[in-house]
Structures are given as structure tokens and as C-alpha cells.
């Protein structure tokens, strides 16, 4: 057990790692918004669609939430070339994570829409507000309140999940960490610095989202 920690070699590479963090955020952002579009269609389809549409959406959600994203991306990356679709690693990862996000957000958004319906009926009955009034004072704040916490948690989860892109050679934060550590052989130092960057990223993301929630929707969200 004669191991001395040496952080200087890693700290020299900090700008390179932070560049990787930027790629991480890009992957998470892209998957989040593209997935949100799928999720919105999925949620509405599950609520309003006919049996066939509901069945298809259900199958999609159940399949993607019960299998690892890593293996789904392996499938995209290795199997699709057989049918003539060649994806570069970044595209494969973003597609995989988007489809995954879509499945989760279908469920989350469906819950939000369902809870709005109840609130809408209740206020319409009790207060006799106009449609626009109830939208402004009841429904939007209600959506924000019910969906804000699960959505911001999900975004944090995506930031962490995007590290699997490294497996496919994408040079995001974890990928760059692997690059550095194979060169300097200071794996523990490199990965502990990277861990700190991830912690900082997720804390900043949660805090920023909590502030947005507080200012725009008066939601008090927990950061920790």
C-alpha cells in the first residue's frame, strides 16, 4: 500500500475536463428536450388515443423503462449497420438516451396532465372562474408544482446517465477522464476530480432549476 496521491498532473488537464463537462451537458440537454417532445406526444396519446395507440405507447414505455439504456445503445450501434444504418457514437448515444427519456417522460407528463384535470374540475366547480383565469391562476401553477420536482430530478439523472457515452468513445466528461487516465496512469486522482465535477454540475443544475422554479412558478424545491 505505497501509493501517493498526485493531483498536479490531473489539475493541469482541468480545462480539457471542463470542456468534457460541456459535452456532457449538451448530451443531457439534447436528450432532455427531444425526449420531452416524445414524452408529450406519448402522454397525450396514452390519454386520448384509441386502444391500438395506447397499446403501442404502453409497449414502448414498458420496454424502454425495463431494459438498460447501455444495451439499447449497443443495439443501435452494432445492429443497425446490418440494415445499412451507420451511426456515429454521439448520434447513437443521443438517439438512445432520447428514446429512453421519452419513455420516462411519457409517464411523468401523463401524471401531470391527470392531476391538472382534477384541479381544473375542482376550481371550476368551487370558484366559477373563467377559463383564462383558471389557466393563469390554477392550472399553470399546478402543472409547475407537480412536474417541476420530477422533471428536474430527471435532468440530473440524465447528466449522470450520459456518462455511458464514454463506453462508445464519445469524449464527454467520463470519456475524457478515461483518455487522461490511460495516459497519466493516475486513475484515482483523475476520477475523483471528475466525480467532483459531476457533483458540482448536478448541484449547480439542481440549484439553478430550483431558483427558476421559485421565481417563475413559486415552487419551493429541495436542492439536496
Amino acid at each position: 500500500m505505497n501509493y501517493t496521491l498526485q493531483y498536479s498532473v490531473v489539475l493541469q488537464q482541468l480545462p480539457y475536463l471542463l470542456g468534457g463537462a460541456l459535452v456532457t451537458l449538451q448530451v443531457a440537454f439534447l436528450s432532455f428536450w427531444l425526449g420531452a417532445v416524445i414524452g408529450l406526444f406519448g402522454a397525450v396519446g396514452k390519454l386520448k388515443g384509441n386502444r391500438l395507440i395506447r397499446g403501442l405507447i404502453n409497449a414502448y414505455v414498458v420496454f424502454f423503462t425495463n431494459t438498460p439504456a447501455l444495451v439499447q445503445i449497443f443495439f443501435l450501434f452494432y445492429a443497425l449497420p446490418d440494415v445499412g444504418i451507420l451511426l456515429d457514437p454521439m448520434t447513437a448515444v443521443v438517439i438512445g438516451m432520447t428514446v429512453n427519456t421519452g419513455a420516462y417522460l411519457t409517464e411523468i407528463l401523463r401524471g401531470g396532465i391527470l392531476s391538472v384535470r382534477r384541479a381544473e374540475i375542482e376550481t371550476a366547480e368551487v370558484l366559477g372562474m373563467s377559463h383564462l383565469q383558471s389557466l393563469r391562476y390554477v392550472i399553470l401553477p399546478h402543472i409547475a408544482k407537480t412536474l417541476f420536482a420530477p422533471l428536474s430530478n430527471f435532468f440530473v439523472w440524465l447528466v449522470l446517465g450520459s456518462s455511458m457515452a464514454a463506453v462508445f468513445g464519445v469524449e464527454e466528461l467520463t470519456g475524457r477522464a478515461i483518455n487522461i487516465s490511460t495516459a497519466n496512469l493516475r486513475t484515482i486522482e483523475t476520477f475523483s476530480v471528475v466525480a467532483l465535477i459531476y457533483i458540482a454540475l448536478t448541484v449547480i443544475a439542481s440549484a439553478a432549476l430550483a431558483l427558476v422554479g421559485r421565481w417563475c412558478f413559486r415552487v419551493t424545491a429541495r436542492i439536496f
Binding site: 449522470l160 456518462s163 448536478t202
Partner: peptide, 25 residues
């Protein structure tokens, strides 16, 4: 609390790397 927050905020892949190399020391 620090323990819980750390492990909820780093990717599992990174945990695997750190544990692997720490154990090997």
C-alpha cells in the same frame, strides 16, 4: 449526508472506476 449526496451525484461508471482502482491499491 455527504456520503449520500456524493453517491447520488456521480455516475455509476465513475464509481466503478474509483472503487476498482482504490481496491487495487
Amino acid at each position: 449526508i455527504v456520503y449520500v449526496e456524493i453517491f447520488r451525484r456521480i455516475p455509476f461508471l465513475v464509481t466503478l472506476f474509483i472503487v476498482m482502482f482504490a481496491v487495487q491499491i
